[in-house]
Each structure stands twice: as C-alpha cells, then as structure tokens.
Measured scan of single mutants.
Amino acid sequence: IINNLKLIREKKKISQSELAALLEVSRQTINGIEKNKYNPSLQLALKIAYYLNTPLEDIFQW
C-alpha cells in the first residue's frame, strides 16, 4: 500500500492529534498508519478521506 496520509495531512495543516480527534482514534493509530505499521479498515480509510476532503485513492493506493 502506498500511503500519502502524512503528506496530505501536513499540506492541510492538520496535526496527528487533530485528525485523531476527528476520527475518534488515538494519535498513535494515525502515527501507525503514516508509518505503514498499521493498515486502516475500509471504514477508517473512508473517514480519513472524508475529513481531509481528499479522494481515497489519492491517500491510499493499493
């Protein structure tokens, strides 16, 4: 999986903590996703895309 979450999140000036709060997950979860240590569920990936107002395929590429 190619993961552009960190790049997109930083472009939008959103911290890991802010995104985690919006998604109701821990900051460690966001960190793990960004470091490719954790693959989000489809539901979480869709929520990330929604809150970042970015197409899912721009954030994650399988």
Rank of each mutant, 00 (worst) to 15 (best):
A21K: 14
K35V: 10
N3K: 02
Y38I: 15
K35R: 13
L22R: 09
Q28E: 15
T54V: 13
P55Q: 06
N36W: 07
N4L: 05
Q28I: 11
R9K: 01
L5P: 01
I8D: 00
Q61W: 12
G32N: 15
L5N: 01
I33L: 09
V25K: 03
S17K: 13
N31Y: 10
I1W: 15
R9E: 02
N3E: 02
K37Q: 14
A20M: 04
T54A: 08
A49M: 03
L19D: 00
Q28C: 12
K6A: 10
T54W: 05
S15R: 07
L42C: 14
I1H: 11
L56R: 02
G32P: 01
A20Q: 03
G32H: 14
K6G: 08
Y51M: 11
L5I: 07
I14C: 05
K35Q: 15
S41I: 05
K37P: 03
E24C: 15
P55M: 06
I33T: 01
T29S: 08
S15N: 06
S26N: 11
E10I: 12
P40D: 05
A45C: 11
N53Q: 14
K47V: 03
T54Q: 05
F60Y: 04
I33F: 05
N36S: 10
I33Y: 06
N36Y: 09
Y38Q: 09
I8R: 03
N39Y: 15
Y51W: 08
E10D: 09
P40G: 04
L56P: 05
I14L: 13
I1T: 11
L19T: 00
I48N: 00
L19K: 00
Q61C: 11
F60T: 00
K6T: 07
R9M: 06
I30K: 00
Q16T: 07
D58F: 09
Q43M: 13
N3V: 06
N31I: 15
S17L: 12
L52A: 01
A45T: 04
K6L: 07
Y50Q: 08
L42I: 11
I14G: 01
D58S: 09
Y51I: 14
E10F: 07
L22D: 08
P55G: 06
F60S: 00
I8H: 07
L44R: 03
L46K: 11
K6F: 06
E24T: 08
S41V: 04
Q16E: 06
Y51C: 09
K11Q: 13
A20S: 07
W62I: 11
L42Y: 14
E34R: 01
W62N: 07
L7T: 14
P40W: 04
G32K: 14
S15Y: 07
L44H: 03
L23N: 02
L23C: 15
G32V: 08
N39W: 15
K37N: 11
A45D: 01
S26P: 15
D58Q: 12
K47L: 08
I2R: 12
P55F: 05
N53S: 12
N39S: 14
L42T: 06
I48E: 00
L22F: 14
E34H: 01
K6N: 04
I48Q: 00
S17P: 06
N31Q: 13
P40K: 02
N3F: 03
I30D: 00
W62D: 07
Y38K: 10
L19R: 00
V25F: 03
Y38V: 14
L42P: 07
L19A: 03
P55T: 07
I48W: 03
L5R: 01
Q16W: 03
D58C: 12
L7F: 13
N31C: 09
L44W: 03
I48H: 00
K13R: 13
N53D: 14
D58N: 09
L56I: 13
K35D: 13
K11R: 14
K11F: 09
A20T: 02
K37E: 14
S15F: 05
V25P: 01
K12C: 09
N3W: 03
Q28H: 14
K35A: 14
T54R: 04
L7S: 14
N39A: 15
P55R: 08
Y38G: 06
L44I: 07
V25M: 05
L42R: 10
Q28W: 12
L7V: 15
S41A: 05
L23F: 02
K13Q: 13
E18G: 09
I1K: 10
I48M: 08
S26C: 05
Y38W: 13
S41M: 04
D58I: 07
S41W: 05
I59T: 01
I8S: 04
L7I: 14
T29E: 09
S41H: 06
E10M: 13
K35G: 11
R27D: 10
I30W: 03
G32M: 15
D58P: 01
L42Q: 07
I8T: 06
E57S: 12
N31T: 08
S17Q: 12
I59R: 00
R27F: 09
S17G: 13
I2N: 11
I59A: 01
Y38C: 13
K12G: 04
K6Y: 06
P55L: 05
A20G: 07
K11L: 12
L23E: 00
L22M: 14
Y50I: 07
K6H: 07
W62H: 08
P40V: 11
G32Q: 15
I8G: 02
K12D: 03
I2C: 13
I14F: 09
L44P: 00
S26G: 07
L7M: 13
